[in-house]
Write a protein that binds this DNA or RNA. Structure first.
Lengths: 123, 123
DNA sequence: CGGTATCCTCATTGATACTG
DNA sequence: CAGTATCAATGAGGATACCG
């Protein structure tokens, strides 16, 4: 009804709500990995991508890719019909995420030790 | 044993692994909200914080705060014993997250519409 | 090669209620 | 005011197998 209030109450409307939106995008466990891989490797096929991302299962990769595609971060192009060959690449929007990813990386490097100080695993 | 390989395989060791670490920190649904609120409001009490964050339950807020505290992002200070009054504030580390949060916000503002183009809710 | 379909498990969230 | 306890619901993630 009141379309003046389409934002969550805790989103004062100063645009900061996008933090959550962006965070939920970049924070999805495998998304940053995928984006980073695509950022540094360029277009990759499904399996190649799976290799790059290591432990991810095809199901999860597929889902992630779907999500990323829906959000216009990556594009899916069929480069060969037979045998089927597809290429996933970042869209302009996806590439525009570089600074964000860089920002995360930079902070992590400066403030989080590579060795991880989660401390909880040391007991 | 081999401390040369303490990083996940998909973490080439070029420091980008921190992306994931940072993302998992900032990407935790309520964390960015809490951090932002603290960033703009300064120290806040538990309930005040809950008000600010809107729909969060005390349980989840409590857990988030625990997590954030453990990660040295926020500090918890008892400012009054009776009645009990506590203040949550960002640590230096927490404040150092500002650029990261800004980066997320900025990207979201520029590339994500405030109106959300998730498109799936429109059917 | 590029995916889907199942099934299962665990982490996270949320609502409600209750305590010091 | 500042939390914790409980319990139910959801959903992301993972292993495996199978299909075009």
């Amino acid at each position: 009804m009141e379309d003046t209030e389409r934002l969550p109450a805790w989103c004062p409307g100063e645009g900061w709500c996008s933090i959550t939106a962006t965070a939920s995008l970049v924070g999805k466990k495998w998304h940053p990995v995928i984006i980073h891989r695509l950022l540094s490797e360029g277009a990759l096929g499904f399996n190649a991508l799976q290799e790059e991302v290591d432990g991810i299962s095809s199901k999860v990769l597929s889902e992630s890719l779907d999500d990323l595609e829906e959000k216009r971060i990556v594009s899916r192009t069929i480069v060969s019909e037979k045998p089927v060959r597809v290429e996933y690449a970042l869209t302009d929007l996806g590439e525009s995420l570089e600074p964000v990813v860089m920002s995360l990386a930079e902070w992590g490097e400066q403030h989080l030790d590579p060795v991880e100080e989660k401390a909880s695993s040391v007991v």
